[in-house]
Design a binder for these strands. Structure first.
Lengths: 145, 145
DNA sequence: CCTATTCCCTACCATGTTAATAGGTAAAAG
DNA sequence: CTTTTACCTATTAACATGGTAGGGAATAGG
């Protein structure tokens, strides 16, 4: 498995913020109820997103979270890399890649690199706004591939 | 991480078999030494490949493993799905997918399906023979993506 | 036959990751 | 000064990964 619940929840959270909050702060409690995800687990995700500057948090009454860009300006790739770390398909690639001494003779490395690029490009070509537009009826739109 | 050592070792093993054995059986001991992978761990991988009919094993002196098709006839996708299970990027997809009750309203499912197809097509379009042809100097050939 | 060689089979284990939960502290609003 | 909310630091149960250990069964050669 490539993408865990953490990354998937992060995307749903960003879509939720985009749909419900234009300027107001949205309470985690509301998102938790709408998305049916434990509030505590969501907290750990918002902490990451907030520290990376993707969202903005406010304490106290009337507080919550808010996007600080328009939905068009968030790529899915950025959200996933922030919450999941690198999207590298194998351990030899990515940010915390462990140096492999077979690298120079490896017959498979070019393949992994190609897939890595493919995956990054795929997610970077989609924004939160794109996912908002879709309704469920659009399902299997990828079947044309 | 999407592909673990199991799948990566399986590919290296298949390439090794393709390069060293035309008709003869190749001992696991030799592959283990050439590829620098524990013989015991390789055993667990060959067992899977053998049961699925990808390779053929022979006991006793002069025994070992052998491909039972030409390298052109093995796609990387087939090898990976055999050793790793489904290549699904998320838990909602693939062979042992857990039914999700949000499926009908999920805004992200189409995206996962599209990626799933992309990854399967990627690996199914490459064969063991393709990887044999490559030398290390070909590295980063995927940068054109 | 006997013995060496090889695949084959089952079990076990150590480590790390995932998906959470628990229980607090700090800041802001009223 | 109380409520509400984000924020911070553990802890945990379950599972996956990446192996290791110790045999058994089949085959070839002598």
């Amino acid at each position: 498995m490539m993408i865990s619940t953490r990354g998937r929840y992060a995307i749903r959270l960003m879509i939720d913020l985009a749909e419900h909050g234009t300027t107001d702060y949205i309470r985690l409690k509301d998102i938790s109820e709408r998305q049916d995800i434990s509030q505590k687990y969501l907290e750990s995700i918002t902490t990451t997103l907030s520290k990376s500057g993707l969202i903005d948090g406010a304490h106290g009454k009337g507080g919550g979270y808010r996007l600080n860009r328009t939905p068009e300006e968030y790529t899915i790739g950025e959200i996933l890399r922030t919450t999941e770390g690198s999207l590298a398909p194998v351990a030899c690639l990515g940010c915390d890649a462990k140096k492999c001494e077979r690298e120079s003779i490896c017959r498979t490395l070019p393949m992994w690199e190609k897939l890595y690029n493919l995956v990054n490009d795929f997610f970077d070509s989609m924004t939160v706004a794109d996912l908002m537009k879709q309704d469920a009826a659009a399902g299997f739109f990828g079947a044309s591939l």
